Structure formats: C-alpha cells, structure tokens
Computed example of a mutant assay.
Amino acid sequence: MEKSIEGARCIGATWYYWKRTPDRLVKAFGLPEFRRESMKTKDPDEAARLARAYLTELDELVRKLDSVSARVRVYGDLSDRERTRLDAEIAGRVTALPADQKQKIRKAGGVWGAGREMVAQEASAAFMEAGLGADYALKDAMGEEYDPDERELEEVQEGARVALHQKKGKALGDALTAAKIIEPTA
C-alpha cells in the first residue's frame, strides 16, 4: 500500500497533484478549482516534497489575502472582484483616518498616489542629502574663491530642503501605515 501524502495521489506508479484549491484563492487569484496533474515522479519521497511545496504556496497566498498591505503588494495578481473588494476596504480605512492624514492622502491623489509620492519624497531627500555641500567641496578642491556667508546660507537652505522632503515622505508613510495599507518600518 502506498503512503498517504496530503495534496498528492498515486495512480498506477505515478504520483499526481490532487488538491482542491480553497474558494478564497480561486475567487481572489483566479486559480483553478482543482489541481490534478502529474508530478512526473514515481518516488513517494519526491512526491511528498513537491506536494509540501505546493501546499506552502497555497498557505502563502492565504496569508497575502489576510493582510491589506500584502494584498496591496500583489494588487496586479488579484482578480477584478478581489481588487474591487480591496479598493473598498482601503477607502474605508482612509475614511477612518484623522482629518490631517486623510487630507495628505487625498492631496496625493489617493493611496496609490500617496505611495508613489512617499517613495519620491524619500528618494529626493536621500539624493539631496548625499550631495549636500558638494558644490563647495568641488570649489575648494579646484581652489575657486567664494563668499563664505553665501556658502553658509546655501548649505542651510539645502539642509532645509532635505528636511522638508524627509518630513513629507514620513507624513505620507505615517498616514499609509495608520490606515494599515503599508507595514510600519523600523
């Protein structure tokens, strides 16, 4: 008698995937209702490994459906019905936010725009911060003369621009995190 393997069945000497896909995953990702195809192996240990790998994939998809932030990351893979459901859930979460956070998300064009704007603000801040004082470092290296008061003023202004981009990116990130659309970062 062949050994019993969850998600697999032996027909003759060949092992087959033999698993019903959970209804949630069928509806959300458009997966087939059943998976019944050859594993192309006669080895029960190999069949057990392949079946476990498939069951792990299904578990991962279930986890993605349980979290808004996880569903946002796989938005393009979701069915139209699941996208509509997710959009409605996101809208409800944004509506429940404090007025200032709601306004930031709306001003950015919704959660998708807020996400893009957050990334753009963070990237701008990083690039600007990396270049702080570079103009004057180059002038120093080339021996050019400049007004030290002008340098000080420009460096303060550049630092303020960096801080503004960081603040805007953080505010958008905080609003998206408060709505549980993205996961908090350390």
Rank of each mutant, 00 (worst) to 15 (best):
A120T: 15
P148W: 04
S67M: 07
D59V: 06
V72N: 01
D59N: 12
G92R: 11
Y146T: 06
M1S: 14
A47F: 01
A51D: 03
A175R: 08
T41N: 03
K42I: 09
A126L: 09
V162I: 11
R81T: 13
E183K: 14
V111Q: 09
E144I: 08
T41A: 05
F127P: 01
E150Y: 10
V94H: 05
V94F: 03
A125G: 10
G113C: 07
A134F: 05
G131L: 09
Y136C: 03
R161H: 01
I182E: 00
Y54P: 00
Y17G: 07
A179C: 07
R36Y: 05
G143A: 12
M118A: 13
F127S: 15
Y16D: 04
A186I: 14
Q121Y: 12
K139T: 12
V156K: 14
S38K: 10
D135P: 00
Q157R: 12
P98F: 02
D23E: 13
F34D: 09
W112A: 13
K102G: 07
R20Y: 05
T21G: 01
E144L: 08
L86M: 08
G131K: 13
P22N: 05
W15A: 12
G92K: 10
R93S: 01
E117S: 15
P22Y: 11
K168M: 08
A96T: 04
W18Q: 15
M142W: 11
L172T: 15
P98N: 12
V162K: 07
G7H: 12
L50M: 12
A48W: 01
K3W: 04
E150H: 12
E158D: 07
L50W: 04
R85E: 08
G7D: 06
